[in-house]
Every structure is written in C-alpha cells, then in structure tokens.
C-alpha cells in the first residue's frame, strides 16, 4: 500500500517537475550549476574507480585464462566488453547513486525542513521545477560522457597491466581490444546510463522533497534515496538488457 502511494506521489511530483520554467535565464544558470555539481564533481571518483577496476579485471582474467588452448587476446576482449556492458554503466551508476543521490536528497531535504522550499513557492516559483528539473537534465547531459570516459579509462587501466606486468603482452591485449568489436554495445551502455541518470536524480529528489521533520529525517531520506535508486538501477538493468540484447 505504501509503495503504491509512493509511486503515485512520485509521478505527481514528476508532473510538476516537467513543466515550463518561469524564467529561462534563471533556469539556464541552475542547469550550469548542476552540471558542475552532478557531472564535473563526479569525474574524479569515476576516473579512479574505472582505472583500478580495468586493471584488476585484466589481471584476474589473465590469471584465470591459463589454459593454453584459450588465446591470450581474449583478455583484452573480455576487459573491453565487461567495461562497456556492465561496469561503465551499471556499476558506475551504483557508485554515483551513493555520491550524487545522497547529495541531492540531503540538499533538497534540508531545504524542505528549513522552509526554503515554502519560500520558493511563496515567491511564485514552482519549487519542484526550479530545483529538480535542472538536476535531471544535468545528469542526462553529463552521465553519457562519464560513461565513455569510464570505458576508455578502464581499458587504459588494463593496458597499464599489459605494459607493466607480463601476464599479457601489449600486442595481444590491443589485438583483443579490436577483436569482434560490437559498436552496438556502446549504444546499449549509453542508453542504460541515460535511464540510470533519470532514476538517480528523480528518486533522490523525490525522497528529499517529501522529507518532514528535522536533521535525522534528512539522513533517513538520504539513505532511502540511495537504497531505492540502487534497487531501481538493478531492476532497469535487467529489463533493458532483456529488451536490447536478446
């Protein structure tokens, strides 16, 4: 029952979010602020995680593919495909759900309990539209770039392993990278991350927006935002994979 009520409230909020902004100039300013906060501020964490995971993936695959019948270039291929198919979209978004999601929920939640959202409404602004729409659009705009960056850096991480260890040769690794490359996998990855961008920003905004009480409740909203974003990412990952890859 609570779940159905929440879904109803969620879509009710989204109707308010996707209305026309009162003032285009202010909206654009907000959009740029959010690009910085949601996109640019996430570059470091995405970069570090991607390089390390690319490197570790390559190492593990190399160690496990010791059978001489398996060609060594499959190491490069599997690093590439794991990054594109799952890591750079789904896993990165699980991490961003933690970083961006909790940030959004606590920011909007604090604004709610300190009556800043009421103040916006009183000034004749639609607070949902003013606060949330720029966040959703900024994530939609920046997450695909983070995705591509993560794929590239993951592959670079693997390359570093090929260069600095002798588990796989650079030649084999690069040969594997180019072997049986399916461009649609990148499209698939980009489509997924766009869905996840909307999921993280809208769900986190939702939990922030309906915070009632004090600082403790802001913390709870923040936790809920992360947990439900993650669940929905996993669910949509399954649905989109079924729809796009089979």
């Amino acid at each position: 029952m609570v779940i159905i009520a929440n879904i109803g409230k969620y879509f009710f909020l989204m109707i308010q979010v996707f209305s026309r902004p009162v003032n285009k100039k202010i909206f654009f300013k907000r959009f740029l602020q959010e690009i910085e906060q949601i996109g640019l501020n996430s570059i470091w964490i995405v970069a570090i995680v991607s390089i390390f995971m690319g490197a570790v993936l390559t190492l593990q695959v190399a160690i496990n593919f010791e059978n001489p019948l398996i060609p060594r270039y499959l190491i490069g291929l599997s690093a590439r495909d794991t990054m594109i198919l799952e890591f750079s979209s789904t896993i990165i978004c699980l991490i961003l759900a933690g970083k961006v999601g909790s940030n959004i929920a606590s920011e909007i939640g604090t604004m709610k309990i300190t009556e800043q959202i009421d103040a916006l409404e009183i000034m004749g602004v639609n607070p949902a539209n003013y606060l949330i729409l720029p966040k959703i659009l900024a994530a939609l705009f920046t997450f695909p770039f983070l995705n591509l960056m993560s794929i590239i850096l993951g592959i670079v991480g693997g390359l570093l392993i090929a260069v600095f260890t002798d588990v796989v040769s650079v030649f084999n690794y690069i040969y594997g990278l180019r072997y049986l490359f399916v461009p649609f996998y990148v499209t698939y990855s980009l489509i997924k991350i766009c869905f996840f961008a909307v999921i993280i920003t809208s769900i986190s905004s939702f939990y922030g927006y309906y915070t009632e009480g004090g600082a403790l409740e802001v913390g709870k909203s923040s936790t809920k935002a992360v947990v439900y974003s993650i669940i929905m990412i996993l669910l949509f990952n399954l649905i989109l994979t079924q729809l796009l890859l089979t």
Binding site: T110, M111, T114, E115, Q116, D118, A119
Partner: peptide, 9 residues
C-alpha cells in the same frame, strides 16, 4: 518572513 528565515543557504 518564515520562522527560521528560510534564506537560500
């Protein structure tokens, strides 16, 4: 004027 001021922090 709200009870806590409600300035945009």
């Amino acid at each position: 004027v709200f009870q806590g001021g409600a300035l945009f922090t």
